[in-house]
């Protein structure tokens, strides 16, 4: 496979006496769709938060493009090329869909306050270009006609898509999706699956997602990692993980056939 984009080296994150993430080692190669699964409370989102700098892990290193990003601020990590979405959608509700995307483009814009006040030529050109690009992104996720609606007024499915579009506006190398299909019906989930695959194929993104929908995980992932009680218990291709007894035990502690039939 290709080169290594993200390498989390023995990351540990503790909250008081609780070790939420315990010496997790994880590699993601460029161009991959990687998934992180595990029962509720396994520490998946905490792991995400460690990568994006929202938490600083006590131990371990996070190599992104061969540079350690542990201890950087969230905004610095965004500059390095990591964007994310949230499990419970976190849009800027009082801003319009277009504005949400424009905020996502923040790091690629150079306008200074002085330039904006006096409306320098290059500032205005940049703003026009930004608007144009934001609109394209909005059309890309199928919200072309909803640009002026407040994000909080959008339907649930549209909010999910807008959140992805906002993350794409950062032009990231690595896109973290935290349960992108939460609350969706089977048909919407299928659409989302197609959408994620498109992102990788058309935009050459590397995607790392947390997901509970096993059908989606198993059909689009190149690599699946499984967490339970803060530790990584298994990793490999979907086929391998499905058969791993440790995974089955973590989920149900019983026969593999039952687990899979139930999850599908």
């Amino acid at each position: 496979m290709g080169d290594l984009l993200l390498h989390a080296m023995t990351i540990t994150k503790r909250f008081g006496g609780l070790t939420a993430v315990n010496a997790v080692e994880l590699k993601i190669e460029r161009g991959m769709i990687a998934s992180l699964i595990g029962p509720n409370g396994a520490g998946k989102t905490t792991f995400f938060n460690c990568i994006t700098g929202f938490y600083t892990p006590e131990e371990g290193r996070i190599m992104f493009n061969n540079r350690d990003i542990r201890g950087l601020r969230t905004d610095q990590i965004a500059h390095r090329g990591i964007a994310r979405t949230y499990q419970n959608i976190r849009l800027f509700g009082a801003m319009t869909a277009l504005e949400n995307i424009l905020v996502g483009m923040h790091i690629h814009l150079k306008a200074t306050p002085i330039g904006s006040i006096f409306g320098f030529g290059h500032t205005r050109r940049e703003e026009r270009e930004a608007l144009k690009e934001a609109y394209r992104l909005l059309e890309f996720v199928g919200l072309g006609d909803k640009g002026d609606l407040l994000a909080s007024n959008l339907a649930y499915g549209f909010q999910r898509r807008l959140e992805v579009a906002r993350a794409l506006a950062l032009k990231p190398q690595l896109l973290l999706l935290d349960e992108p299909t939460a609350g969706m019906n089977p048909q919407e989930t299928d659409e989302m699956m197609e959408f994620i695959r498109n992102l990788r194929d058309k935009l050459n993104l590397t995607i790392f997602l947390i997901e509970h929908d096993m059908k989606l995980v198993m059909s689009i992932s190149d690599q699946v990692s499984v967490m339970d009680y803060g530790t990584k218990i298994s990793e490999g291709t979907p086929a391998y993980v499905q058969k791993d007894p440790a995974v089955i035990k973590a989920y149900l502690g019983s026969a593999p056939e039952e687990v899979l039939s139930e999850q599908a």
Binding site: T74, D75, R84, R90, L170
Partner: peptide, 30 residues
């Protein structure tokens, strides 16, 4: 003039993003 121009600019969007959700705003690179 000053506040209006700022409010519709990159700066104003950053302000409003922070007001809406500071953590997410930071994750957007602000």
């Amino acid at each position: 003039f000053v506040t209006y121009r700022l409010s519709i600019s990159r700066q104003g969007r950053s302000w409003r993003a922070i007001r809406a959700d500071e953590d997410v705003a930071e994750a957007m690179g602000i």
